[in-house]
Design a protein around this nucleic acid. Structure first.
Length: 271
DNA sequence: AAGGAGGTCAACCGCACTCAT
DNA sequence: CATGAGTGCGGTTGACCTCCT
């Protein structure tokens, strides 16, 4: 079994095999392709380096900013961050973060872990206030039916710099998460349980394999529309992450400063 | 020119998760 | 429900490169 850097010949074998047989079955792929590599290694090489849709080269300023903003919301969820940067891989972003962005933030006096000023972070450490920035987001507890009082809920929902509240949209519970630390970001995220089609008139919905189904992003910077349409292009596997039931619009949407007409919302499905 | 220090990034490792049986 | 295969993810490693003394 070979280890270490891939040779040009190995790359060619892998690319040629995947072109004719497609991705997947990584465990059996090396033998079939005549490679002395483990399946994991083949998968990694393909995903991080050989895939034709990869964007090589330096990160742009916009990409930098987007990574920083997404990291402040998602933490080290590199795959989620990568899903919002077409042509970039999680490994690439992780490396870029550790080698460039971390230092850039530190030089500006910003703690790359908390996204707050280093001085503020020190104050925060001593005070242990609730007003801290998000490092990880979990919504599970919000569905905990044992939670008794509204006051307890609100207190709990104030954690980690996010304002979380439950709402109901057309009888479906929806968790609304609002960033409160980065006022310039002005991002609102709504997540709810999967779409339930009561009428059974659209079986594609019933067959949907996605579990987290509704993702709704509102951005105060947008003037004409405050909702986003998030839907797969493939009608046979519609995810129904799309959410604004009343106004499904094909107009592009300004998410984190990027027009979402150019973004692939399939990546917004949550796992 | 030599070599040490630090930076970069591809690749590996171990764990967790999903799904089929 | 248990188990194992397949896959994905985040952290870490190590080879290579560049810069500095």
């Amino acid at each position: 079994m070979n280890k270490g850097a891939w040779t040009k010949e190995e790359d060619e074998r892998l690319v040629s095999y995947i072109k004719s047989h497609g991705e997947g079955s990584w465990r059996s792929l090396p033998r079939a392709a005549g490679l002395l590599r483990c399946g994991k290694s083949c998968r990694l090489r393909w995903i991080n380096y050989l895939r034709p849709d990869l964007k090589r080269g330096n990160f742009t300023h916009d990409e930098d900013e987007l990574i920083i903003k997404l990291h402040s919301l998602l933490g080290n969820k590199w795959s989620l961050i990568a899903a919002r940067l077409p042509g970039r891989t999680d490994n690439e972003i992780k490396n870029y973060w550790n080698t460039h962005i971390k230092r850039k933030l530190l030089s500006k006096g910003i703690d790359p872990n908390t996204h707050r000023s280093i001085n503020a972070a020190k104050d925060h450490d001593s005070k242990k206030t609730e007003d801290q920035v998000v490092k990880d987001v979990s919504f599970g507890s919000l569905f905990d039916k044992t939670e008794k009082s509204e006051e307890q809920k609100q207190k709990k929902n104030l954690i980690k710099g996010l304002v979380c509240k439950e709402e109901r949209v057309e009888h479906h519970p929806v968790v609304v998460v609002q960033e409160k630390i980065c006022p310039d970001l002005n991002l609102e995220l709504r997540i709810s349980p999967p779409w339930q089609n009561k009428n059974h008139d659209d079986q594609t919905r019933e067959r949907s394999t996605y579990t987290a189904s509704r993702l709704y992003v509102g951005n105060g910077m947008e003037s004409s529309s405050d909702t986003a349409k998030c839907q797969t292009e493939d009608s046979s596997s519609i995810s129904h992450s799309s959410l604004d039931i009343s106004s499904i619009s094909s107009v592009g949407y300004d998410f984190l400063g990027l027009n979402t007409r150019f973004m692939d919302f399939r990546s917004l499905e949550m796992k």
